[in-house]
Design a binder for these strands. Structure first.
Lengths: 198, 198, 198, 198
DNA sequence: GATGAATGAGACTTCATTCAT
DNA sequence: TATGAATGAAGTCTCATTCAT
């Protein structure tokens, strides 16, 4: 079914154009026209792929989460680094540590602000919350399995805490990069993970 | 003599109407018309108080931060509660623990998403970041002064961590209240503060 | 296949509607809405052809000058009339001698008043000035070539003078047609040209 | 009646503010608000002096012509210069030879473009046309009285011609000062006047 | 599938004017 | 006389969406 693949590829290309517009000009400026232009299409053509602006937006957001998940899945442990380093770097996947991830997270932040108001987006937001929560809980679990973790940690509360730290730091670095630098972000994460360990 | 009107009071009323619209319909729907209507004014009248939409938005946002600051300043220690409880409740001021604060933070989240794109808002965002950072650092400092805190805490990193936790949890509760409930938020905060103490 | 439309023809039609509005109601009343209505289009449609009001205005003005130039180019000498008559009638092309040219010049006068204030229009104004200056200089040159002209004329100053007379008379006849009639205009032009000749 | 004088003085001050706005931003931007601000008044106060925008505009224009007339009346011949020089300099009064007169004429040009469309302004325009025409006819007459003028000049046609040259040159210098400089304007006028003389 | 012309609503903003004080 | 708050219309421009081709 080559057609379908093309179809999907095209949608992905459009979603990437959408990201670009959102990052450059903000989600409010992400008009159908601008996205079409950024994707090198006519406005009419867009309609063959997305029948409405909401649908386009939702698809673009789903892609953000899919990318993160795929990256996380693709990670494999190599003996070059310590298990703790491996786990720490896993968390980097959801922090704005480089340009690519900054863009993803800016897009996601813009999207999140819309969730409050557009209930059709809620489902996706919830799904991503759950996925990420589970992923970070797994980090804590791994620390415990590896016998790194202190005794007496409350798994659920630690997951909440790590999750909040990660998203809070992401937001702080995106919005106030001068006050909360990339290095502070990394350092704070390491400090936190170490505080969980013996 | 012209009509005597308390200019500032009127501006505050308009800002409150702005909040209402933002919370009900999102910042993108916060048009001059809707705000004017919500404030019981004509669009033209709004211009006596705010010469542009940006100015109106900025004022409304400044009010959010001012309110938080005023509430924080107004707090006084009473012997009914323990010092640790007093500090913990101080942090509640910047968490969406009740309807009033939820509204403030929803407004603030919407605003934050705009900061990424509208650099004129950056200054305010930075100021609020700094204020809040200092406030939360003071909490850690207080724990140390009271001899509650563990030895060897890194003040700056602890402040980063607490700040990230607070904002991360606020976002999680606003966006995913079913998954991250009010009680979890409170419990996680207490858990974190306790983890800093002996 | 999309609707096939002669883009340029449509732009010309819109420009003509613009002229009509300017002549009927003045350049200040030449709003996008009124022009769209006069052209039988919606305001949104106008944007397919002109992305801003300035652009529309500029195009409409360029058309005035293009028409004049085309008319001038199309003129051919026939032996029915004397060379002097031929030259004189050439100058008529830039005088409000009939309804069509009155309209053109009213539009141009309105435009000129804007030039003082909108520097983006300056270029066009300068170009038209130069074209017309050259055209009128050629008239003087022709008189000299034909040996009609008096000896000792200063070509550049004569061009300045003829140019000023032409535009001055055009303005006087447009603004004060009762005081400065069509016939006086023609007569004065002939008088001037004759004064250059032996 | 000191009050009345004050009243009139205030109106003059407002008219001058109107000029300033017209020259700086164009007649289309000459809103009541801006004029009020430029004059240091409230919009409401303006209404005590001018009950409508048209009235204000008309008064401001009348002032232009009054100033020119007063200047012309105030001129007195002194033996330092030749009669021809005296006459020539008289014509300078209605040319944009310095900043002050440039402003007057810019204002007047803006006004003239409105005349085409607002018939209530016609009367003033006609009056000024007549006054100026008479003034320039007097220049030609003076040349004749002084026996400077060539024989056989047609007084009326010469007046038309001079009048057209003056207004045409004024327009050219205002709109295209790079192409038609101050010096060219002066030189062309002198050339023309000399061409009338023996 | 693809195009882009067309639409009309709605965005922000500026305006002249009215009017209570 | 003086003020400036208030209004509602109208300005330009952008938008999502429809639709003929």
């Amino acid at each position: 079914m080559p057609k379908i693949i093309d179809h999907h590829k095209r949608k992905v290309r459009i979603a990437e154009a959408t990201w670009k517009v959102i990052v450059d000009e903000g989600i409010e400026q992400a008009s159908v026209r601008k996205i079409a232009k950024a994707a090198g299409l006519s406005t009419g053509s867009l309609r063959h792929y997305f029948s409405s602006q909401s649908e386009l937006l939702r698809f673009s957001m789903e892609m953000v989460s899919e990318r993160v998940i795929e990256r996380a899945k693709a990670r494999e442990y190599s003996e070059d680094i310590s298990p703790l380093e491996f786990l720490t770097e896993g968390v980097y996947e959801v922090l704005p540590v480089n340009e690519e991830r900054k863009i993803e997270m800016e897009v996601w932040l813009a999207f999140s602000a819309k969730v409050l108001v557009d209930s059709t987006l809620r489902e996706l937001s919830n799904k991503v919350y759950s996925d990420m929560h589970q992923g970070l809980k797994n980090v804590v679990l791994a620390l415990q399995s590896l016998q790194y973790a202190k005794d007496g940690l409350d798994l659920e509360l630690e997951a909440n805490r790590l999750h909040a730290i990660v998203d809070g730091m992401a937001m702080h670095h995106l919005l106030n990069p001068e006050h909360f630098t990339h290095d502070e972000m990394i350092q704070t994460l390491k400090y936190h993970l170490q505080s969980l360990c013996k």
